[in-house]
Each structure stands twice: as structure tokens, then as C-alpha cells.
């Protein structure tokens, strides 16, 4: 056992770099996904029939965009957006380059999660706000956002964990990260110890993210 750990410790630098890369990719792509996905989800929800800014054509387009984005397998998306990545990042290889497809995959995911969360807000509460003379913008921020915040936080947590999973595939375009280590060292070079170590780290990471998300959601949940 001690011997195994000593042997593994030779790879500590590698592991640390892997953790860093994973956090970097997931963190940034999540940030971008929330910045774009949140308004996307809101727009989709409030343009739905019977909602505060009913607009069927806009709703249908957004709904379709989200569905298309969610149906492309990530590994294909990653390759397909290489030209776009090159335009944005300057290169299509590396950790930073991996952020582009990761964010692109997560945006529609966040959009759908936010859309679903908003549909859970009681129509009666929205109506009460309308009866008080609230503007659509006031309803968005003071009613929809605050009432669905716990659900949105849990949704973003779910997205973060999905991104950790997706980021393993980023190795295919030189993105690095823990998943990449598991594949290159563990799977391709039969270093089972390293594979198990990365998996354990990933499990801990996912647990940590979920715990944090739950904690935060609970903090805002007064139902």
C-alpha cells in the first residue's frame, strides 16, 4: 500500500495540473454558460403562451435553438466548432480552446434548466404582481428570479457536474484535465493506480460541487 502511494506520488505534479485544468475549463465554461444561458432561459419562459411577454414566434425559435444545442453529442460538437474556436481563442488546441465547446454545450442546458425552473413559479404570484401594477421587468427580477433562485442554483450545480464529465473528453483536443489523465495514463498506458486516483479525485470534486450547490440552494429556499 505504502509502496503504491509512493509510486503514485511521483505523479502529484501531474495530478495538480490536471485538477487545475479541470477547474479552469469547467469554471470558465460554466460562467459563460450562465451569463448567456440565464437570459436565454428567461426569454424562452416569458415568451411562452400566457406568460408576461407572450410572443409565440420568438418562443418557438428559442425553444428550437435549445433543443438543437442539446441534441448534438458533445464529442461531435467539439470537433464541429473548431473553426469558431480558432476565431475566438486563436487556436483550436489546448485548455483555453476547450472552453469554447464546453460553454457551447452548457448554454442550451442552462437555458432549459432555467426555463423549467421559471415554469414552476406559481402563475398566481405572477398575476398578483401584475395586479399591483408591476412592469414585466419588475416581474422578471423581483418575482421570477427570486422565486426560482433555489431551483436555478440546483440547475447550475447540475450543469457544473455535467461539465466536469464533458471536460474529460476535452483531452481529444488537447484540453488536459483530470479526465484526460485518466484516459491517457490509466486507459491507454494501463496505469490502473493513476486511473483510480483520478476517478477518486473526480468523485470528491463532484461531491463537493453538489454539496456546495445544495447548501446554497437551501439558503435561498423558504418554501
Amino acid at each position: 500500500m505504502t509502496e503504491l502511494l509512493t509510486r503514485l506520488s511521483r505523479y502529484n505534479q501531474l495530478m495538480l495540473a490536471g485538477i487545475n485544468e479541470t477547474l479552469y475549463m469547467v469554471g470558465f465554461s460554466l460562467l459563460i454558460a450562465v451569463i448567456i444561458g440565464l437570459p436565454l432561459g428567461f426569454l424562452t419562459a416569458i415568451t411562452r403562451k400566457g406568460h408576461i411577454m407572450e410572443n409565440t414566434p420568438v418562443h418557438k425559435v428559442l425553444d428550437l435553438v435549445i433543443n438543437i444545442g442539446r441534441s448534438v453529442p458533445f464529442i461531435i460538437l467539439m470537433v464541429a466548432v473548431i473553426p469558431l474556436t480558432r476565431v475566438i481563442v486563436g487556436t483550436s488546441i489546448g485548455t483555453t480552446a476547450a472552453i469554447v465547446p464546453l460553454a457551447l454545450a452548457a448554454i442550451p442546458f442552462v437555458g432549459r434548466i432555467v426555463d423549467n425552473a421559471l415554469q414552476e413559479v406559481s402563475p398566481g404570484v405572477i398575476e398578483a404582481a401584475q395586479a399591483m401594477g408591476a412592469t414585466p421587468l419588475q416581474i422578471v427580477f423581483k418575482v421570477l428570479f427570486s422565486e426560482s433562485l433555489p431551483a436555478i442554483i440546483l440547475g447550475i450545480t447540475l450543469t457544473a457536474i455535467n461539465l466536469i464529465g464533458y471536460s474529460a473528453m476535452a483531452g481529444a483536443i488537447g484540453g488536459g484535465g483530470l479526465g484526460d489523465i485518466a484516459i491517457r495514463y490509466g486507459y491507454q498506458r494501463f496505469k490502473v493506480g493513476i486511473m483510480i486516483e483520478t476517478v477518486i479525485i473526480l468523485v470528491i470534486l463532484v461531491q463537493l460541487v453538489q454539496w456546495l450547490g445544495n447548501l446554497l440552494a437551501k439558503r435561498f429556499d423558504h418554501r
Binding site: 398575476e127 395586479a131 401594477g133 422565486e147 433562485l149
Partner: peptide, 21 residues
């Protein structure tokens, strides 16, 4: 209309309060 509505109070069967407040 929104200004006018501010001067008309309304209460509901299911109260319709904000759970987050």
C-alpha cells in the same frame, strides 16, 4: 393602467405570496 392598478388592491384565494420573502 399599471399606475391605476397600484390604487386597486387585490387578495386571492391562494394568497399568492412570494415564498422567497
Amino acid at each position: 393602467l399599471r399606475k391605476r392598478r397600484q390604487k386597486i388592491g387585490m387578495i386571492f384565494q391562494h394568497f399568492n405570496l412570494l415564498n422567497s420573502r
